[in-house]
Amino acid sequence: MNARPDHSVLADQEGSARDDLLMDVRNVSLSFGGVKAITDISFDVRQGEIRAIIGPNGAGKTSMLNVINGFYTPQVGTITFRGVERRSMKPHDAVRQGIARTFQNVALFKGMSTLDNIMAGRSVLMKRNIVWQMLWRGPALREEIEHREKVEEIIDFLEIEHIRRTPVGKLPYGLQKRVELGRALAMEPSLLLLDEPMAGMNLEEKEDMSRFILDVNQQRGTTIALIEHDMGVVMDLSDRVVVLDYGKKIADGPPDEVKNSQAVIDAYLGVPH
């Protein structure tokens, strides 16, 4: 039940346009009781890239991430992830298929330590049943230690060794964001969704976070889709950018191209439609 399904066979049958396509979002629309959050959006994410989703407040960016990881079910449209087409799934199934994310407002487990938070990210990957857990011997202990080693690697990578045992509720905001990234990494995702990873950070913290994101992308080969407001950061980090405004896609392409698009400039300057 915990094994990740192997979709490579399916992917071949699907015959996607590009063979490095990781996820394809097609004609997705989402509304809440008549209020449209997303209207007919299509875009794709390629293997190994950093894909940015930008747009003014209320453009539907977070709703888009919520659709991708199964928290919301769109009324129309499909999402093809690693060759499997779907409209809805339970969020924990999304994690099993390799989609992990962080949140706009830090959503850590405040009563737990940094270590436990990151370990919790590995819950899906751990298998020992309750009887072994009860005894805390043999397979259960081995599994725990094995995963602890992986988690300690992440802790080293994010340079948060010193707060390993601190309850995350007591950490400053910037560090909480880092722990949250750690928890997402612990899931060993093939697609990492970051919802405003640098919101509320100072310049130094932003630089650190940018470095971590690039390292994750390059060293671990993780594909990243991120929402961010800091244009400088977005333009530096991302390979391709999709721009949303009022729930619609208004531009899609490499950062330089998007930056000069008239529609994007209008959206950010608030030119009336």
Partner: peptide, 17 residues
């Protein structure tokens, strides 16, 4: 850990799998 995660924030728990 899964119990504590559900206690602290059940939505986030669901979203980490």
């Amino acid at each position: 850990r899964t119990w504590k995660a559900v206690r602290d924030m059940d939505i986030a728990a669901e979203l980490v799998g």
